[in-house]
Design a protein around this nucleic acid. Sequence first.
DNA 1: TTTGAGATTGGAAACGTTTTCCTGACTAGA
DNA 2: TCTAGTCAGGAAAACGTTTCCAATCTCAAA
Lengths: 368, 368
Amino acid sequence: MGGPRKNPNRLRQANASIRDVAKRAGVSIATVSRAVNGISTVAPELAERVWSAIKEVGYVPNTQARALVSGRSRLLGLVVSEITNPFFPELVQEFENLAVEQGYEVFIGSTNYEAARTEALVRRMLQRSVDGVAIMTFGIEEELIQRLVERAFPVVFVDAGPDLPNIRVLKINYGEGIREAVQHLAALGHRRIAFVSGPLRMRSATARRDAFLAAMAELGLQVPPEHQVEGTHTMEGGIRASESLLALGELPTGIVCSNDMTAIGVLHGLYRSKSAVPQDVSVVGFDDIHLAQFMLPPLTTVQMSCKHLAAAAVQALRAGIEPDHPQAQQREWHISTQLVVRQSTAFPRGSLPALARTKPASRRGASK
Amino acid sequence: MGGPRKNPNRLRQANASIRDVAKRAGVSIATVSRAVNGISTVAPELAERVWSAIKEVGYVPNTQARALVSGRSRLLGLVVSEITNPFFPELVQEFENLAVEQGYEVFIGSTNYEAARTEALVRRMLQRSVDGVAIMTFGIEEELIQRLVERAFPVVFVDAGPDLPNIRVLKINYGEGIREAVQHLAALGHRRIAFVSGPLRMRSATARRDAFLAAMAELGLQVPPEHQVEGTHTMEGGIRASESLLALGELPTGIVCSNDMTAIGVLHGLYRSKSAVPQDVSVVGFDDIHLAQFMLPPLTTVQMSCKHLAAAAVQALRAGIEPDHPQAQQREWHISTQLVVRQSTAFPRGSLPALARTKPASRRGASK
DNA sequence: TTTGAGATTGGAAACGTTTTCCTGACTAGA
DNA sequence: TCTAGTCAGGAAAACGTTTCCAATCTCAAA
């Protein structure tokens, strides 16, 4: 009767609040808060009372209120291009595990390569007041990022973001893995090697293509324009790419793909046209998604470690969020790549089998 | 000077708040709130002033504060078993698209089939005060759910949750699709058909197996125990299952799998042992993930429409959340399944080719 | 016995909204 | 011109926390 005015519009009856706990334990809400957060010293006897009161009333701290007052949500935004590309779920899983271990939650969103969606997604993340955002795709309006960076909002990019100071970047060393792949094919006797890229508006796609071209040039091998096909980083793109390669007078004997999904599409396209892999054509992928080893034949591919990438992303975000993080000043994190040889590559028809014995040294990818 | 006490611990300078807008527009915060939410009538001239003030100061409503006072977060929890199983990203994507269209955000989490993780995940979701949660996996402690249901918290299960009233359930009609699959194989001339199930502690796994056994029984076909292999709904499980089937004196001529990942594993296992699909063995999957059509050979599988499943899940959640939702009283949503014939099934060696012409009528899956 | 430092604890402000209640102005009918 | 009725808009109360500041208490040293 005559109690405080209640908002009748709330949906369900509210949870037990810190006040209920305080009343039950016969202490102030400040003490409950301190006990819950393990802050300062609370007399053991009081703490005990508080904890049992918490159990009794089934108290769960309200994250919204916490975030409201502390200004930190302990939420990390993770923007990926396409959740249905198996590479990303693997990344998401690692990222989520690490984040939760370290006391954060993850807000995931995928952009489907559409700039408008990316834009909207980042906005929604900001509205949910994430503490920082890792952008593992392209297509952010430079101006939005600029605004974020100006306000010292932690942003992490893969490969390269807009040219702004104070952005944190995960730099992937495409060069090493892709060079290994090209050298592996060349050692097997391949000379005509084609490359199926990702969508070239993406920096990570052009970076991979450039790494390929550089490795070919190093070996003095030509790459005519018709051997550079633009794909979409999807299986459908791989099929179309293989069709356009099959239409050439002389089929290349090796095909390097910008990611594994493309390689799977290429495998499928070759299967449709009755070309045998690796007898007629060798195929190399990129990413080393879990699926790669289960393809028929198991896919030779360049491994980019999700674990390292995710770990670096979480670290870089925390470095930006937590004022006294040991790496608060670091701006770049490096991720290495390496070739994994399986059965989708072999010496080309007519080449000497003896050459096929080349084995690149197996190294583990490592970040710093 | 001597203004209100500021909390110096907050990380970055705060966003523009509703108060800044109000000051700028020369109105009260109540008016700003009303203008932003389109509630009640605000004089057009004032609304105009408010909106331009919002633009000028770059105001973005703070979701935390909103949720705190309104008691609704407009967040939907989505719990899946394994984000790395491609079926789930497809589901997640559909779910997310629909949710965002309808003004909600999604909080995704995966459990890796571990009860402890599921438990912890649901708790974290509640702490983030999601408005409702869709649980697309198993392993929730019955007691936790009971507490939720008692407090009229919207919970949606797939297949079947704990036996509680007021839970909303998406019922999948495994029977139709799996019967089609078995009939398809039988029509091709198969008699010895094995089944590789999922982990049998999952209801959706036992439901699929039971549907298979029922369909076989209908046709008077025997399923000896050694033809029922328990898998794990992963490729690795599929490989192990195929190995155990290959170890039998007489290999079955058809293998039906509880999901596509298992089927891909089986395909790989058969490839390793040089058994040809579909010449030596026919393989049928379940789910119809996008990848299925790109397998070598393209996988015959039972389609369960992500789109329908996601749509039903979002609808069921909203029915529970919004008091005057048209389907607020509905407790069950039905999802149909259907066979998609591709090239991993054919008549068994020695059977009459003529029989292979059987084509099941193609129907579209539909929910209600 | 008094004093003072240090350890605990409580009171209350603040975070940024939504929403209720109420006031004041305006409209229209008599 | 007056009065009743509408209606727009403002003041202020919540929502559930964290944290500052002041007050109290304990205990040892002088």
